[in-house]
């Protein structure tokens, strides 16, 4: 009797916990959207921030920077992440050297992002003389994104049935061609899902960027697409504040009169971005998988 009662109470507690977590999430998302959605309009996403005195304006440069930085980071990490993942899944033999790589992956992926940012400050900002720049920011983001990508690729490849590899090798296809033409395509759904989720993380990252990409954005001329020009949005050597950094900056300085409004709008944009990444990761992964295994 007593044991049964305890069991009942425990079950209720577990339901409460689940309910609590769901409500926390609902409050978080609801609060952000409630605060932020009405701030977001066409001006907000297409205009640069207003002056410190007047406030107003939007976050267009920040929004652009967030995406541009994401693209740069992915350009750096995708090839290396693929290479590293393939190495770990296909070539690495058990032993000291492989353990060493595993340890590196583990340490790199658990480093605090502020420490990664400081490393970027030392190496990419100061030592190379690039200053606060998109490139420095992208490289710093790559440092903590890379181990994630390697893991994603390795896991996706390991999930491909061994029979696929065997079938290809038995046809006299070389190991490398087997990897490129048989294993990678079969692992693609997993890889895509993982990459998009990683993109979401990169998109929202701020701490690693404060001292690498900087906290300011120069006046940008969105008609100037010459990457070497200082006012060009594409110039990888210009400083750039992203949406996430912008939120932190206006909150911690609080000089702008409508700081909380802008922060709320930017947070809502960030959250929407992350949700889109999250949903598209699920959707695209499944879609690719279907495409691979069944009728077109």
């Amino acid at each position: 009797m007593n044991a049964k009662l305890t069991d009942r109470i425990a079950t209720i507690c577990f339901y409460l916990i689940a309910f609590l977590i769901l409500s926390v999430l609902a409050i978080l998302i609801g609060f952000i959207l409630y605060q932020g959605l009405h701030v977001i309009d066409w001006t907000f996403i297409t205009q640069p921030p207003g002056s410190i005195l007047t406030g107003g304006g939007g976050v267009a440069p920040q929004l652009f920077n967030s995406f541009y930085l994401l693209v740069l980071t992915m350009l750096i990490t995708i090839p290396i992440g693929l290479g590293g993942g393939i190495y770990m899944a296909e070539y690495a033999k058990p032993g000291k050297w492989t353990q060493m790589i595993r340890l590196s992956i583990e340490v790199l992926s658990s480093l605090p992002s502020i420490v990664v940012g400081l490393f970027g400050l030392l190496l990419f900002v100061q030592l190379t003389g690039w200053g606060f720049s998109l490139l420095s920011g992208a490289l710093a983001l790559s440092v903590f994104n890379l181990p994630l990508m390697v893991r994603v690729v390795e896991q996706a490849i390991s999930a491909v049935p061994k029979e696929q590899t065997e079938a290809s090798l038995a046809l006299g296809v070389t190991h490398w061609q087997t990897i490129m033409k048989v294993i990678l395509p079969a692992a693609l759904p997993g890889i895509i899902t993982g990459f998009i989720l990683a993109s979401g993380r990169v998109f929202g990252e701020a701490a690693a960027l404060l001292f690498t990409a900087g906290m300011t954005s120069p006046v940008l001329d969105f008609t100037n697409w010459d990457p070497s020009s200082p006012t060009s949005p594409l110039n990888p050597l210009r400083p750039a504040s992203t949406l996430a950094v912008h939120i932190w900056k206006i909150n911690s300085e609080s000089i702008v009169s409508d700081a909380s409004k802008i922060a709320a709008g930017s947070s809502a944009l960030l959250i929407i971005g992350v949700l889109i990444f999250n949903l598209s990761a699920r959707f695209l992964g499944q879609w690719f998988y279907k495409k691979l295994t069944s009728t077109r």
């Binding site: 978080l28 993380r201 990252e205």
Partner: peptide, 16 residues
């Protein structure tokens, strides 16, 4: 829900 919680950027947590 948990996956969405992971994805929320830390500045957004800070802002909330």
């Amino acid at each position: 829900a948990i996956e969405i919680l992971v994805g929320i950027p830390s500045v957004v947590y800070g802002f909330i």
